[in-house]
Design a protein around this nucleic acid. Structure first.
Lengths: 353, 353
DNA sequence: TTGTACGCGTTATCAT
DNA sequence: ATGATAACGCGTACAA
């Protein structure tokens, strides 16, 4: 009974196309991919027609093995569902598709070890490019978490890949010897701090992520630099997760044990800041009125929360695009710097002195 | 000058490993992948050690060509940066990695034609599974937009892929003959309408997307069904884009030309609803107080906007997971149904009659 | 248990 | 311009 579930027949190969068109495989190959110029136009159309008739699609793996590498860009992110990374991913896919490259994506959510494992198996894919965004494997000031061992292993792995002819680009992680797209975290938060001082704020709380995350470190450092050592009161620094929940929990805890004289909460990214806003509101404190809030990244929803979230705009999608361009451009381990820009919104109203 | 940019040397192959370990390629292959049992454990460790020493990674394309298919799941989405799709993508990658499968992702942002093109080249990848989420290629009631031609071509393409042994799963698109993860859009919005009637709302505006998008059609139909034909006043239906901007623009236009007696705006997804909330606020109307707002999907930020957005929860991440499971399970074109649940928040306060 | 040899689908080299 | 044929790296019958 022919119920639609036929036995899987293998897809047509170049041989089939050649036979159908009455030419050799070599000619068929040339007609479809290679130097079309050296094939009689009549044969070209014959082959093309045969291919269409059979529904032929070249076997990418076979091409890859014959040519050497796969037309793919491998992207490693910490969490696709996080708007930070999905924006980068959007930029990467955009640029990759423009260069007729396929994007493969892996999520290193769990741990630095997982990230290492991913890069290892990625090497097996022989992609043209590997892009690692927002790694956790990073020497903290005390060289903790990710662990120098894991870090070394990752660098080794990437180095082997590069030695074999692959291109490596890191996003936001300056101190490994590869092509890098850096985001001006330090400058951005420094200027943000300046802007907030200008608005009249003096007593700060900072929600930061664990030290293993370089982005967080840089943003905190920049912010403190912007406040100036001789400046206002010592800010209250709280460590939490680098996620919306982390921001919520930290702000909640803060509100419950009393905010004291804190006038404004700066979270090192927007998802944390937005979580914090909700936590404050849940605790009966109106963001913007009771306590001001500022974030970093200027993700899409920053304009849709209420009040609008003051933040530092990072053109993440562009960062993704640049990463691909950097990888594809010749020339050694260069660096592309992504500039950031302070965006003041209603979550940090001017404060009269 | 050895400035770090050595000539790219080719990566070690199984031959190299075999030689290094002093065994044949066959033994090396068996030791690393296949039937480990039939290899002297001494040789197993020798081979493993040699592989580690050389930093060997098996060439996936070569394995693929020897075995027949690639250990990958290909995912097609409309837009990675949209939380709807990035949540699905998160679920897909989670389940795929659990099955030791690589995820390749393509974005069909532009057009149905682009989607067709993508699926075509995807076939060349010989993935184990193709998952298409939120296609635009879909017969509208009037069979417009995507065009029956493109639609047919896509179905053909997928059918050829399946005939060749591939697994196809569609997310939220019931009427193509493939495995499908359907989301209870109709039921969800029907119940939402019921809940809103129960809260006292009688005069509705609906923000919907173009008919080519099945999800939108179903949600509108369900909502109208929930209102009941003999019910309240004829709702005002506005067509716009299926994006945050679409929601913003439509609500803005609505507010500018006067909302009349509209009590509540239902947008067919949350990003539209959230855009609409901001538009209303920009027009001086407080969401929840002046006009109520409801959406669909219950994306993460629904709880972080103010007031909290009433919506219909869709376990998107789970949908992604299920899609992979469905694809991997044996058995023909089955269907997995994802249930939805109304979540009432402050954006639709009870209305006294 | 191990090794030899062939096949997978494609491109590239070398004749013709 | 075209057609054999040898790679490419790996898995796996088959033979030893």
């Amino acid at each position: 009974m022919d119920d639609g579930s036929r036995a899987p027949s293998s897809p047509p190969t170049l041989h089939d196309v050649a036979r159908e068109a009455g030419v050799s495989v070599a000619t068929a190959s040339r007609a479809l991919n290679g130097s079309t110029r050296n094939v009689r136009s009549e044969n070209v159309s014959r082959v093309r027609a045969a291919a269409a008739r059979l529904g032929y699609e070249p076997h990418l793996s076979a091409q890859a093995i014959a040519k050497g590498s796969t037309p793919t860009v491998a992207l490693v992110v910490r969490d696709v569902a996080d708007p930070y990374f999905s924006s980068i991913a959007a930029g990467v896919t955009e640029a990759a598709e423009a260069a007729r490259l396929i994007v493969t994506m892996a999520v290193a959510d769990r741990s630095p070890e997982r990230e290492l494992e991913i890069v290892r198996t990625l090497r097996g894919q022989r992609p043209r490019v590997i892009i690692v965004a927002g790694s956790r494997v990073d020497e903290g000031p005390d060289g903790d978490k990710g662990g120098p061992a894991t870090r070394e292993a990752l660098a080794d792995e990437l180095e082997q890949y590069r030695t074999a002819g692959g291109r490596v680009v890191l996003i936001s992680q300056r101190d490994l010897p590869f092509g890098t797209v850096t985001i001006d975290n330090h400058g951005g938060s420094r200027r943000l701090a300046g802007a907030l001082l200008g608005l009249g704020y003096r007593r700060f709380a900072i929600l930061r992520a664990p030290d293993a995350i370089r982005t967080s470190r840089e943003r905190v450092a920049g912010f403190l630099a912007g406040l100036g050592s001789a400046g206002p009161a010592e800010p209250l620094v709280v460590e939490t997760e680098f996620t919306r929940e982390g921001g919520y929990d930290a702000a909640r805890a803060l509100a419950e044990r009393g905010l004291g004289d804190v006038e404004i909460v700066f979270a090192v990214n927007d998802v944390m800041a937005i979580g914090a806003m909700t936590a404050l509101r849940d605790a009966g404190i109106t963001p913007g009125a009771g306590v001001a809030v500022a974030g970093f990244d200027d993700i899409g929803s920053a304009v849709d929360v209420f009040p609008g979230l003051t933040s530092v705009a990072v053109p993440l999608r562009d960062a993704g695009r640049q990463a691909v361009r950097l990888a594809l451009s010749d020339g050694g381990a260069r660096e592309v710097r992504i500039e950031t820009e302070v965006v003041v919104r209603a979550s940090t109203p001017p404060r009269r002195a």
